[in-house]
Design a protein around this nucleic acid. Sequence first.
DNA 1: CAGATATTAATAGCTGGTACTAAAAGTGGG
DNA 2: CCCACTTTTAGTACCAGCTATTAATATCTG
Lengths: 193, 193
Amino acid sequence: MVVSASKKRIRQESLLKELEKNPFLTDEQLASALEVSIQTIRLDRLAKGIPELRERTKHMAIDAQEKLQAIASEDIFGQLIDLDLGHSGISMLQVTPDMVLQKTGVARGHYMFAQANSLALAVIDAPAALTGVANVKYKVPIYTGANLVARAEVIRKQNDKYTVWVKIRNNNKEVFRAKFLIVSLSEERAGQK
Amino acid sequence: MVVSASKKRIRQESLLKELEKNPFLTDEQLASALEVSIQTIRLDRLAKGIPELRERTKHMAIDAQEKLQAIASEDIFGQLIDLDLGHSGISMLQVTPDMVLQKTGVARGHYMFAQANSLALAVIDAPAALTGVANVKYKVPIYTGANLVARAEVIRKQNDKYTVWVKIRNNNKEVFRAKFLIVSLSEERAGQK
DNA sequence: CAGATATTAATAGCTGGTACTAAAAGTGGG
DNA sequence: CCCACTTTTAGTACCAGCTATTAATATCTG
């Protein structure tokens, strides 16, 4: 009994592994892969609460779609907390495990850049704007879980050119700062292509 | 004939729109939504080359999964074309529609920054490195379809500090340049490799 | 009205299952 | 070694959501 019970458990774990490798396997394919009958596969799926191929496929489609949409809707660049158009703005970005380099655990620099840059662009009071120049300084490495608060301030405006300072802090400690030179495109957006 | 042909065309376009809104509709649901018979729906699908629900679902699952994987494996920052460790490197990045701002059609600046920054880090001959300072200049707006070629060159090395220049070109025209000051972490944090 | 096109109906067969019943095989204890 | 029990396999009926095919009916158009 002990032996067969473990045989069963082992098979059910193999089943999970097979499906992890390729979730699009039919019961028939699984049966021949694990060298048991289809019925056994079905009992195992039942025991493990694994839905049938079609259900699995459908859920994969829906889940992946939602994830993609979350990425596309760019929560990545932080939430806008406060915005005084033309003057200043504040945004917040939570550092999640997928933003860091596995090797070092340090957040990739372009996330801070993206947060700062998009905030700087949001602050500009213009229908469309483009970053022209950026000077960036990373002061402290950032790790998972950090709650980055970016504060942008427009410090100069000359015609269609804006100078914006962005400082990012984590726990009230400045970890990043950037100066952006941004060009507003309000008039001449067809000028370049 | 003209009238009915257009009726048909209109219906087939409605069909596409319905499926765009909700790709998980069965022929039966589509039939009642468009107020025609199931057979008509099936003929329309045939005419338009629209696969059945299960095929659609499967392809969605696969496509979305692949996209997610591409994002996770960071093809986003370009493919490394050439790398002379410690000296120079070249990477390529194709600008896709989801990288641009809808408002202006211009690629978001942080993609170029990410491509340049990650290339600069890749070129450094060290187990781990961090960007300290970056000076960035966007010269020309980039649109969908652009094929960005970044070329990085280490121009100075002092102890654990590297200066790397990265220039990005599109059709042999320089569109972006950046200077990175990168700190290697080889001794203090990641001495082991 | 004829003739072409469009739509609907009806039927057989397929895949990949669920749900259920039952038989066969394996296993373990006394 | 046999009995009881678990595990595995087999078989049947049924389902959704189709494809493929044939045929009938409706609609339009000159």
